[in-house]
Design a protein around this nucleic acid. Structure first.
Lengths: 347, 347
DNA sequence: TTGTACGCGTTATCAG
DNA sequence: CTGATAACGCGTACAA
């Protein structure tokens, strides 16, 4: 653990006998430098182990080569794929990721946003974060470029990457309908999530088209978490006329529903069909085998980062929104209901 | 998107008519400042919306208030909990996390380590990373403080946080033995992982003590991934005398084994018992219900960060190692074997 | 092609 | 208690 002093550009300058700026130019790949000098500089630089200080560069250039990412919770399997996507282009752009968990809490989000701004991040990616409150808007509007993923407020013309909630959800409900399900429960995601809202609307519209009756008791309001899924499952299964199928607001959600079903001794899909939304890696494992709506998260993360890079380069560009298609992946958690609705009514 | 210029300490200085250094002192909470001036400064600072530039501070103080974290893959449910733990203390210490995925690839790891060093991170936490190769050691030894999690090389006296592999693994094998399992397959983690090595040794030692024969074909070498689990499962189930229980090197691993078992039409735990290692959230869901060895990952992450903070403050402290206990959590993926070993031998 | 001088926003040092 | 000045390491306009 030698107490080493940092090798600066000045050391390289001294070692080569060349001027500071010459070294800088040579290193930066400017063309005003003779090949010979450049070689000398490069040799000395590697020999001394010189590495440019990103900090000094950031101060000078007013650009930190850093992208801030706000996520609800890295430990939740839903989010990391987005992050990987962002990272993919960050690496390409020679940027580093500053990652913070907000746990869906607005105070924490504000705190982290301020921290990111203090660090002069070149831009921020907000994944399913709060986007409407005055405090958040104030920070957002008068600062760094940013891109939203999966949650926005249509009132604000922000750069946005989301998923097409119509295709996936309507595919799912039609799939269930084709299997003869006539009572379908729906778990709604966070109340302030635009995405969650769109999904519910699609569900209701499509249900109407299919002439399915959706009473209030068939819509459960919660968030994307496991506990919400469990609570929803318990709620639905306690109804006088329980649904024969339940659509979760996320895969984790759907797992919660499965949990509740299994704790009641119901078999899946024999006595209850369950549909998720996300298609996390685990959904495809046979032990789970969840029918779900697939989201292209890594691609969405990358697209968001690309949008961000564009906006950094061109701050006055008109805001763009990118909507990724979703599709239903049918696996083993859905099947025809054990008792069709009709006979049951006659009983 | 107003093209706002950053409010600097100079602006505050001008607004108050006080000297630059006085403002700085007041803001920094130094005690050489009269209450009155401090109030003036604070008022002006908040009024103007002044926020100190972390970048400038980093350059001046040679301390970036940043902790670098290297992780194999955030998208893998095994790692994020460690990260959360590190983050817990980072927030307490007013530090930010610079997170990078290495995918277990040494080149990527080296790349990211250099990036972190260029950014003058105050320290690094390496979670299950390469720690022995000359290239890695060179970077490690002559630079920033660092702490290792879950993988180290005993030859180097590094700060280290790991788990007690003896307790958990021996509990697991004894549990299986008590259930009358006599042939147990073992999936070994990455060959260069100290932790994976210790676990195998414990397994073999305990097997010997219990007079279980462990032929070579009962040890499968791979990594912590799902695919390794699948491959291991297939390998074991194809043996002339397949094991009646299999211990994975991680939960994801164990899920892979379950996958292979289910694809062969074997029921769990009826015809095959499976044990994982990690206790990820999903392991406790009824749909999975995995018997596994619990690791206190968030606590370990926090402990590592604490160690790091200590080392930053006191670079010449003698290296410490912290070993966290592990314990077996018995769930539904283990049971007595369908056909005891003895009758089978008679057949 | 090369060298000089200055600015980026802070904090540390030392003088008043 | 307050204020002037010098770093921190790099990029860049401008002069040579």
């Amino acid at each position: 653990m030698t107490e080493r002093k940092r090798v600066t550009i000045l050391d390289v300058s001294r070692a080569t006998g060349l001027a500071l700026s010459t070294v800088s130019n040579a290193l930066a790949g400017k063309n005003h430098v003779s090949e010979e000098t450049r070689a000398t500089v490069l040799e000395a630089a590697t020999r001394l182990g010189y590495r440019a200080s990103t900090v000094a560069r950031a101060l000078r250039m007013q650009r930190s080569f850093t992208i801030g990412v706000l996520v609800a919770d890295v430990a939740n399997p839903s989010s990391p794929d987005f992050v990987r996507g962002v990272e993919d282009v960050a690496i390409r752009e020679k940027c580093t990721l500053l990652l913070s968990n907000t746990d869906g809490d607005e105070e924490r989000q504000l705190l982290h946003m301020r921290t990111l701004l203090d660090r002069q991040v070149d831009g921020m990616v907000l994944i399913s974060q709060h986007v409407s409150s005055p405090a958040v808007r104030a920070l957002l509007d008068a600062s760094t470029p940013f891109v939203l993923i999966q949650r926005r407020n249509p009132l604000f013309p922000d750069d946005y990457v989301g998923s097409d909630n119509v295709i996936g959800v309507s595919e799912a409900i039609n799939h269930l309908h084709a299997l003869k399900h006539r009572r379908i429960g729906f778990v709604r995601g966070p109340s302030d999530s635009s995405t969650a809202g769109e999904r519910l609307e699609t569900f209701l519209a499509e249900a109407k088209r299919l002439r399915l009756k959706v009473d209030d008791e068939l819509v459960f309001k919660g968030d994307y978490g496991f506990e919400t899924g469990v609570a929803a499952g318990r709620h639905f299964l306690r109804l006088r006329r329980p649904p024969t199928a339940i659509m979760g607001s996320s895969d984790i959600n759907a797992l919660g529903v499965m949990e509740a079903a299994l704790e009641s001794g119901l078999s899946i899909p024999g006595q209850l069909s369950v549909v998720g939304l996300d298609d996390i890696a685990l959904a495809s494992f046979r032990a789970i085998n969840l029918t779900t709506i697939h989201l292209q998260k890594r691609a969405m993360g990358a697209a968001a980062a690309d949008l961000l890079i564009e906006r950094i380069r061109q701050p006055d560009r008109t805001p763009q929104e990118l909507i990724f298609p979703t599709r239903l992946v049918v696996r083993g958690s859905t099947a025809a209901p054990a008792l069709p609705e009709a006979p049951r009514l006659r009983a």
